[in-house]
């Protein structure tokens, strides 16, 4: 019986770790939140934990018998008819409960599938002309260190006049207005944002803003303004330079071809 219960216990512990442990860690990292594991991911986690633990327990014949034996016994042993009935009812009820949870109507908004970094188009229209993103380079990224610093500084002015209110004074995405937004403003210090993008991608995202997102970025709820209507092309490039200079990240570069 011990061999039968052990895998179940392991599964239960793992489940609790995911169900309570993960949000607990998250609530310590970010007080005020309770970051549960999203249902879709949780299902897969549990599926693989159950499968893995079952495999772990059945590789030897003894383990297999210990796990399967009691079940076979339950269903074949006439002495356990009552227990069998209870089990069948319980399992059936569990199935019914899961099914009910699955189909019952809810008032939740539909699940959102925003892709945070959707593929850019090959060319975009901004500032009254057309840019081919593949070849686009930051004209202010020059070898001359002094010139670079000067452009970045000018970009900083643009940043604090326009971007600061949402993206914050330290580029952490926590400007005065950040709490009002969902999705929250991008955190440029985080390695998951500008650090893994090319400057042309960043240019695209600034110039056309939330409304310029392709269909993978739906629903278009990003509050990012369409900046090419508000600032100049030059200012856009300078502010990009500033973002990288300030955060210390380097833009991703693509190899030259042909």
């Amino acid at each position: 019986m011990k061999a039968f219960l052990k895998p179940l216990l392991v599964i239960l512990v793992c489940y609790l770790l995911l169900k309570i442990g993960v949000p607990l860690v998250g609530s310590i990292l970010h007080p005020g939140t309770w970051p549960v594991i999203p249902t879709g991911v949780m299902k897969m986690y549990v599926f693989f934990i159950v499968t893995g633990v079952l495999l772990m327990s059945t590789f030897s014949d003894e383990g297999y018998d210990a796990l399967v034996g009691p079940i076979v016994d339950l269903y074949t042993n006439p002495a356990k008819a009552m227990l069998k009935l209870v089990t069948v009812v319980l399992v059936g009820a569990l199935g019914a409960y899961i099914t009910y949870q699955y189909v019952k109507p809810t008032f939740d908004a539909p699940v959102e599938l925003r892709s945070i970094h959707p593929a850019p188009p090959s060319s975009i229209k901004a500032f009254g002309k057309r840019f081919s993103l593949q070849k686009l380079k930051n004209p202010f990224r020059v070898e001359d260190k002094e010139q670079l610093a000067k452009s970045a500084e000018e970009g900083g002015i643009v940043y604090y006049k326009n971007c600061y209110f949402c993206h914050g004074d330290k580029m952490l995405g926590k400007g005065p207005f950040w709490e009002g937004f969902n999705p929250v403003p991008a955190n440029f210090v985080n390695i998951g944002t500008i650090a893994q993008l090319t400057e042309s991608f960043v240019f695209w995202r600034i110039a056309t803003g939330g409304p310029g997102l392709p269909s993978e970025g739906t629903p278009w709820i990003s509050a990012m303004p369409v900046w090419h209507e508000l600032i100049t092309e030059e200012e856009t490039w300078k502010v990009i330079l500033f973002l990288y200079e300030y955060t210390g990240h380097n833009p991703r570069v693509t190899k030259e071809h042909h």
Partner: peptide, 8 residues
């Protein structure tokens, strides 16, 4: 979770 970014 407090947004789209999951802290864990």
């Amino acid at each position: 979770v407090g947004g789209t970014h999951h802290s864990v």
